[in-house]
């Protein structure tokens, strides 16, 4: 019996080693309500990728409406059906089958910039200095912007957790609304 177990265990290990590593897809979630507009994320992004501070070369940008105090982080969503991938004439942009990240192969990019024009989020920009496109690569699985954002405006979570997260936040707002209408004591009164 014991030998059987050992045998089976060894088999399992072997199987796992041979299997192609498929990470569960994680995505970068943005919450504009929590964003304070500090732009630390822009700085750290450029410091990490460009070894310099250069908001314009950052892969994430904070778009602001100062008078309304609205700050929206704009960054590549690594779409399921990416327009940029579809439109790229040289297939320089492609979706990595392993982890679902939209990646650029710089050797194939001819600099036509159609991706820059086509992205609905404006998440791809053009680096005039080096003549290349700039887009988020999720920093090899450890997005620097998420790490530096101390206000949870940026989160890096498993794709299936996102809807749950959103539901929870929606529910929280709803419960606040309920207590606003019927008063704090509503649940206590049962």
């Amino acid at each position: 019996m014991a030998v059987d177990y050992v045998h089976q265990f060894a088999l399992l290990v072997l199987l796992n080693l041979n299997r192609k590593v498929t990470k569960i897809q994680k995505i970068l979630v943005v919450d504009p309500e929590k964003c304070t507009g500090c732009r630390l994320c822009e700085l750290v992004c450029s410091a990490f990728h460009e070894k310099a501070f250069s908001p314009i070369k950052s892969r994430i940008h904070i778009i602001k409406w100062d008078e309304k105090a609205v700050d929206v982080p704009m960054v590549c969503q690594h779409c399921s059906k990416p327009v940029c991938v579809d439109i790229c004439p040289t297939n320089a942009l492609y979706k990595d089958a392993k982890n679902g990240i939209v990646v650029v192969d710089e050797t194939r990019c001819i600099g036509c910039k159609v991706c820059v024009l086509s992205c609905p989020f404006g998440a791809i920009s053009w680096d005039t200095e080096h003549g290349k496109i700039l887009k988020c690569d999720l920093c090899d699985g450890e997005p620097q912007c998420v790490k530096i954002c101390k206000f949870d405006a940026l989160k890096y979570v498993k794709a299936d957790k996102v809807t749950l997260l959103r539901k929870r936040e929606g529910a929280k707002k709803l419960s606040e609304l309920v207590s606003l209408i019927v008063g704090e004591g509503f649940y206590a009164r049962g």
Binding site: T36, C38, R39, L40, L43, K150
Partner: peptide
């Protein structure tokens, strides 16, 4: 809303 200056975590 509290709003931060550039590169500030204290906002």
């Amino acid at each position: 809303k509290p709003r931060a200056c550039f590169a500030c975590v204290q906002r």
